[in-house]
Structures are given as C-alpha cells and as structure tokens.
Design a protein around this nucleic acid. Structure first.
Lengths: 192, 192
DNA sequence: GTCTATAGGTGGATAGAC
DNA sequence: GTCTATCCACCTATAGAC
C-alpha cells in the first residue's frame, strides 16, 4: 500500500508529511510547525489548505482508509487463495512498520479520548471495514478448507486485528521489526 | 490489581490523578494544569513533588510496574493451575478497561517516539517482566498438559500480550468492553 | 497561494512570600 | 508544602499585504 498520493500537489505533500508525523508521534505529538518546517513553508500556508488541525486529521484518515481499502481490493483481484490473502494483509502492516511507523488508526485508537468527533468516526469506519473484509476472507477460507477457526468469522477477524495492532506497537517500542514478523506468522499459523 | 496506593499522601494523590489522566488521554494529552484542577491545588505545588513531567512519568511507571508485578506474585501464591493463572492475568487487563482506561504501558508504547528516555526504559522493563512471567506460566502449563502451544513459551507470551493490548485499545475506542472479553477468551482458548 | 505579523491561549517550569 | 506571580516557548488560528 502506498501512503503517498500519486499526484503531488501542495495539499498532498502536506498530508504526506502530516501522515508520517502522526504515525510516528501521534495526534497530540505533532504540530503545524513541524509540517511547516519539513515542507519549508509557513504555518499560515498550511491553514489555507487545512483550516484546522481537526480538519487535517479527518482528511488524513479519509485518504488513509481509501488507500487501505484500495490495497484490499488489489488483494481481492489478485486471484490469491484465502491463506495468501491473509498473508498479504499482514504484509501491509509489515510495510508500514518497516518505515518505523505505527498504523495510523492504531495510533489514533490509543489517543481516542482526545480526538475531535469527526476523526473518531473515521477511525471506527476504518476498523469496521477491516473487520468486514477479513471476515469475508476467513469465511471463504473456511469453505475451501484452507483456513480453520472456531466461532464466527468476525470474531476471528477481531483477534487478528488486535494481535497485529498490538504487535506493531510493541515491535516499534523495542525497535525490533522481527518481533512483529514472528507474531504475525503465529497469528496466521493459528488459522491453519 | 489496585492502582492507587494504600497510603494517600499528596505525592500518591498526584500519582493517582496523573495515572488516570495518562491512561485515558495519553502522555501528550494531559498537563500539570489538569492534575491541579482535579486535586484543587496549584501547578507550582505539583512541581514541588515532581520537578518535571518526565520525572512524574518515570515515577508513575515505576509504581505501575511495581503494583503489576505484585499482582502477578499474588497469582503465583494462589495455588491456581496454569490455566487459571492465565485467566487471572487477562482479568487484570479487564479491570483496567472497566475503568475506561488503557493499560498505562500500552498507551506509552503508542507514544513511544515522543517519550523521555527514562520513561522509555521503564516501559520496556514492564513488557520484559510481563513476557518473562507469562513464559514461566506457559512452560508450567505445557509440562502439566494443561496448556498447549507450538514453539517457544516466550513467543507464545508475546502473541498473548500483543493481542490483549490491541484488543484493549480497540474495545475502548468502540466503547464496548465486551469486545475485549471475547477476544481475551479466544486468545486463551487457542492455548487450550 | 504564500507570506509577515500577531492574537489569544496553554505548555512546563521557576522565584520568592507565607 | 502551598501559594501568587511570572517567564518564555509553543500551540492553533486569523488578518491582511503581496
């Protein structure tokens, strides 16, 4: 999944910079000044494109979810079987972590209590979409006997998402991406 | 596990208030002013007991880890078998979430990139201790055939911790503690 | 669309009276 | 040990020139 947009107008560059800062430092850990410094423009210029920080955050989330869902659609179109789809899903997380970033939504979930309501809604929308997509893949895999799990697919999907988000946070704190890889493999192995 | 201290001098009250704020809003989401308002004292008074925010955070983490390890020791002394110990371990997380709080260290892990180094070290110390304790219980359970898992105990412990931390973050965002309970049960079931 | 300048508020932190 | 008063840096955000 490419986080950065193909087009690279000023709003896109601002979103790219804000996205990186947010994934590394969190919503309450970066400021317009940080973006301004990175892009060598003034804060006032940023406010022209994104009037408020809440607006910036909301549009950031919208783009992130859009890109994420596009990556999931690409997996669907690949003709991979259910197990391969799950592996590619985990790889999306790996790629984010490889850039020393947290999942944008995992970060925002931690800071949830301090977020403006529009951003909160986008975070929930992201996780709902992830659960639904994963549940579909899991059901498909169960039917083809490629995947095995007890109970409902949506519950199994939630365990996987929770495990991946948690493993990402921990691996990043330890500075050991390999921790995430090992946990990701185990989570997939439990579905074999 | 009781987060609040039995003694309740001023430093303890400050730590109690800061702990709650940090678990709900994160390290970058609360200020000395928030604590001062809650305790109806001035900010200057807080600085007398905890000169800097970094110092406050570090001592908060030290107390949290101490209380957490005491809770683990209590489980060890209870004569419970390995499976019961694991269930009680999950219950510690449930109790924290029941107060609408995140695990203090899960929160700090998300904000890791912005933390003063002394606090970072305490966060790692917490997770190391948790992994070690869990790995011990898992090995004990495997020997008594009460618990089953592939690979090393430390790896299985990491999957469990990641799953619990992630499930906590998500359940709190959705405002549905039941999400955590269901994921917790599934994570334990995978060790049956 | 980007700039300078600035408003109005809050952040962590300190000096010194009581 | 707690207070008043204050410092200075930084925050989000806006007005108005170019």
């Amino acid at each position: 999944m490419a986080s950065a947009s193909l087009k690279s107008g000023t709003p896109q560059k601002i979103l790219d910079s804000a996205e990186r800062l947010l994934q590394v430092r969190g919503y309450n850990g970066f400021s317009y000044a940080d973006i301004a410094t990175a892009l060598r423009v003034t804060k006032a210029s940023l406010h022209y494109h994104f009037p408020s920080k809440a607006d910036l955050g909301r549009r950031l989330m919208q783009r992130y979810t859009q890109n994420f869902l596009a990556a999931l659609t690409a997996i669907d179109s690949s003709g991979a079987d259910a197990r391969e789809k799950l592996q590619r899903y985990v790889s999306i997380y790996s790629d984010v972590l490889a850039n020393n970033r947290m999942c944008l939504c995992g970060m925002l979930a931690a800071e949830y209590a301090t977020l403006p309501k529009p951003i909160r809604l986008e975070v929930i929308r992201f996780f709902d979409a992830n659960e639904a997509w994963l549940a579909g893949v899991l059901d498909e895999g169960r039917q083809s006997k490629a995947v095995h799990f007890a109970g409902s697919a949506i519950e199994a999907a939630r365990v996987l998402i929770a495990g991946l988000e948690g493993a990402m946070m921990l691996a990043r704190s330890y500075g050991e991406a390999a921790r995430f890889e090992r946990t990701g493999r185990r989570l997939l192995a439990e579905l074999a």
